[in-house]
């Protein structure tokens, strides 16, 4: 079952993400998280690998948690300064829900890493998605790590010119990042342009039809998993929170 068709895994990710977006209570989201975790373990993910994937989102999660806690006051006041309630029970629940939602969506998206990008395109094309569109989605996904690498390179290059980023005051640091933003984005755009030229020079979109070396096949296990996931998701949505 670990060798399910990429399309089946896509359906699973979509179902889990829809539920994560619709659920609002920490208890529901926690159960969904446990289920997603079990699914990932089933697909041979190690817990530390899941941690590595979630790590880049820690700062965002913490920020959203604090924002929700402070700016969505409701229920009992837990921490207050004078007359102003800083943390309320309602805010805490909303903050926890937000964090759990991000964790579930990110964890579910890890299923995409269990099959090759080539299979991702093939899967979409066999679902009658135009090849150009499928390829664009693939390239967009491919460019996310390129963008991250670009940022890492720039930060390294800045430091190697003698700037100790850890010692630079925050105001100056923000100003530096603001100045670096345009060249980095423009650099990635140039790379995208070069990629487009390279693709077109190798015949991309030159002919109306494409030849595929192999085809993906859906097996009984795929149909069973897809139907189960879709039916369960619809049932859970209809049943309501």
């Amino acid at each position: 079952m670990a060798n399910l068709d990429p399309r089946t895994k896509m359906i699973m990710v979509v179902c889990l993400s829809i539920l994560a977006l619709l659920y609002n209570t920490p208890a529901q989201l926690f159960l969904l998280f446990v289920f997603t975790l079990m699914l990932l373990l089933f697909f041979n993910f190690r817990l530390n690998v899941i941690g590595v994937y979630l790590k880049p989102f820690l700062a965002l999660m913490l920020f959203l948690f604090v924002v929700q806690c402070v700016f969505s006051p409701s229920g009992l006041s837990i921490l207050s300064v004078g007359q102003v309630s800083l943390v309320t029970s309602g805010g805490l629940l909303l903050g926890s829900s937000m964090v759990l939602r991000i964790i579930v969506v990110t964890a579910a998206a890890m299923l995409f890493t269990t099959f090759s990008p080539r299979d991702f395109i093939l899967g979409l094309v066999q679902w009658k998605v135009p090849y150009e569109l499928a390829f664009m989605v693939f390239i967009a996904l491919r460019f996310l790590p390129v963008f991250r690498d670009e940022l890492v390179n720039v930060i390294t290059a800045v430091q190697l010119r003698g700037v100790d980023l850890k010692k630079v005051p925050w105001k100056q640091k923000l100003d530096l990042y603001r100045r670096l933003f345009f060249p980095v984005v423009y650099g990635v755009m140039l790379k995208a342009q070069h990629l487009a030229v390279s693709m077109e020079s190798r015949g991309f979109r030159a002919y109306p039809t494409r030849t595929y070396l192999r085809r993906l096949n859906l097996y009984y296990a795929d149909y069973i998993v897809m139907v189960t996931f879709l039916a369960a998701t619809i049932t859970l949505i209809v049943m309501g929170p």
Binding site: Q159, L160, R161, G162, V163, D164, L165, K166, K167
Partner: peptide, 10 residues
């Protein structure tokens, strides 16, 4: 730090 190295090595 990388910054300290960068001030010594180009």
């Amino acid at each position: 730090s990388l910054g300290e190295i960068g001030r010594r090595i180009g």
